[in-house]
Design a protein around this nucleic acid. Structure first.
Lengths: 361, 361
DNA sequence: GTTCCTGCATAGATCGATCTACGACACCCG
DNA sequence: CGGGTGTCGTAGATCGATCTATGCAGGAAC
């Protein structure tokens, strides 16, 4: 007999020998031990209606004794997996981990578990990770502004609740949680212009990421940078430099920039990249008095005294927490779309200084 | 009729109204469209034996046309979920994200997806997260030295392949990937002693985390610190300070320490905590020339010029990559336990300086 | 012509939960 | 006593894959 249905021992054949291992208890085992039906056990687990106190107690005792835990896969076959998935484009970015911290906090005390699918590469990877979450039947998906067409998202959102973080389009199919990137960029540009800066470079992600109309935060920041420069009559000073998604690429691309020219200020797409820029300035022996730097996100290290990076704060914890709340509401049955925006504030620190006097030629 | 089995439309009742949504395709739909059996489609998906080229083509066309994707939950019911789970004690720690990066890299090109279960709190949370992964039928679990009894792990490892990161016990049930913490600590202590330091404080995690015999890296580092101090005849100078698991608690606890006394060096349990210590020194107006600091892990920011933290490097990427490899081997059928150790190197930077001359009293 | 392969395809059981529909029983009421 | 109402519990279908066992051709060997 290959499988003994009455005992909890599983016999596996592996390379000729027979391995006997204690099989994990199923709802069937619990039911048998408690002398009730599977359905009864299921009711107890789910706190459903129609269970006498006496039965509840017997079943709970059996669950305890057998160390029973429901298989999520089996539950997912008939409904929910009690899992919320979040896609992270780059796990090394401390701002994203703040979002995760907020999401985790919002889920403690609920029966849901958060799982993270890391993408970690530009482009298609984000879509792959989101797809992997969907394949795993998660009950809700949080995604951080991936490079994907709205139609694709709408189809996804028709099957599972979706919250997009940082995406500025307004779909009826999914909810969004965003920072006000236009306002954040306004704060940055007014600050820099107020300090007398004119030759302000914007260091941002690839053209693909900042494609106009994509609703990506970096696209908005770029667009507003261009608008503010134009409004200030500084069309001639506009300079956009592209880079990758981590600190090291920002360092290299800033170095290349500095080899060619020396602006008075660099507005960088986010703090992680800004750290690379600061390194490059250091490599070139330039101080904030010579070249000011502004980041975006206000990651923890930005306030570190030796770094002291001027940046835009948009509470990542609040965003993660809100995203989870919106998902839970959707799971409860809400159908009207919700779009939540976080108000940014500028944290002025030592990395921005008044523009230095132009050296005599 | 509640459910129309012939069409791909699903009718849901929600608050009285009937919502009609396009149901995601199943293997059944694909089989019907291609005019073959479910089993045939399954074979094509799994690249199994016994499929004619003609059928493969028809099935693939149907899969394409219906945008079919296998439900992982259904697959998990009968075997594997093609998912590797990793438990992270604290997602804010950049060393852990390096491990994830290594693991992700090792999985690209395979059919496995990595998911992360964040724990983010001391104590029982890690066990909860690991349990959540097990409930989700992952095919392998990577866990970062959680506070849990070996017996618990052995029982877990009997059901699913497990790799413990940083845990120094040697079980036959699970594999381990560790840094050589004894050697790392030796490098640190010899460096500090060589610089003339005597009053060396060790800032580490809670007593629970560093419980002797737990095999936790912090426990080893503490134990070796004590041994090296003793061997150097410095029993009187031994001073162990406890803190939490993030930068902020390290900052506060270091402040409290400095309010009471001023050592010449602080050996901190890891880099994240060391950053908090550096902040506290800054708060007290103390420079590396007055108080040296050593961390552990060599996170990216440690090499930042303005921070320049002396620390122990133990490639997190290599650890994550190796952990994944070990899991894949176990999934392939390996049964003999493997224990892999990464050799640490000391990165000497500006945060450690020769001991200052004792000020005249 | 029978037997025996070999390659290709299918039927149907199976995994472990949930959930609907229904049955059994007790109680109350006119 | 028939009939409603409520409570507690069970049988059995169901979700969507995988996988074993089996069947059916068609060709080769004898």
């Amino acid at each position: 007999m290959y499988r003994d249905t009455e005992s909890r021992f599983r016999h596996r054949r592996r390379e000729g020998e027979i391995v006997t291992a204690l099989r994990a208890a199923t709802i069937e085992d619990v039911a048998r031990r408690a002398g009730v039906s599977r359905a009864a056990v299921s009711k107890v687990i789910r706190n459903a209606y129609g269970v006498s106190p006496a039965m509840r107690e017997r079943v709970n005792a059996a669950i305890e004794a057998l160390d029973y835990r429901p298989r999520v896969a089996a539950r997912a076959m008939r409904g929910s997996s009690f899992t919320i998935g979040i896609e992270l484009p780059h796990i090394g970015n401390p701002f994203f981990t703040k979002i995760v911290a907020g999401a985790t906090a919002a889920l403690t005390g609920t029966e849901y578990q958060l799982i993270i699918a890391p993408a970690d590469v530009d482009g298609e990877e984000g879509v792959r990770a989101i797809g992997a979450l969907a394949d795993r039947q998660v009950d809700g998906i949080i995604a951080i502004s991936p490079l994907v067409a709205p139609e694709w998202l709408e189809r996804l959102a028709a099957r599972v609740p979706v919250v997009m973080l940082g995406r500025h389009d307004r779909s009826v199919a999914y909810d969004t949680v965003t920072g006000d990137d236009a306002e954040g960029t306004r704060l940055v540009m007014e600050h820099l212009l107020g300090l007398g800066h004119r030759r302000i470079v914007h260091l941002t992600r690839s053209e693909e990421v900042t494609r106009p109309g994509s609703g990506n935060p970096h696209a908005i920041r770029l667009e507003r940078y261009l608008a503010h420069m134009h409004d200030a009559g500084l069309d001639d000073c506009i300079r956009v430099v592209r880079t990758g998604l981590d600190e090291e690429s920002a360092r290299l691309d800033t170095r290349a920039l500095l080899d060619a020219e020396t602006p008075t200020a660099i507005f960088v797409g986010n703090d992680e990249l800004a750290l690379g820029t600061l390194r490059a300035l250091n490599d070139h022996g330039l101080s904030p008095a010579e070249v000011s730097v502004v980041g975006y996100d206000d990651v923890d290290i930005a306030s570190y005294p030796a770094i002291s990076l001027t940046t835009v704060n948009q509470s990542g914890e609040a965003m993660g927490e809100r995203a989870v709340r919106l998902l839970l509401e959707r799971i409860q049955g809400r159908t009207e779309p919700t779009h939540f925006s976080v108000e940014p504030t500028l944290k002025v620190r030592g990395s921005t200084q008044p523009v230095p006097p132009e050296p005599a030629p």
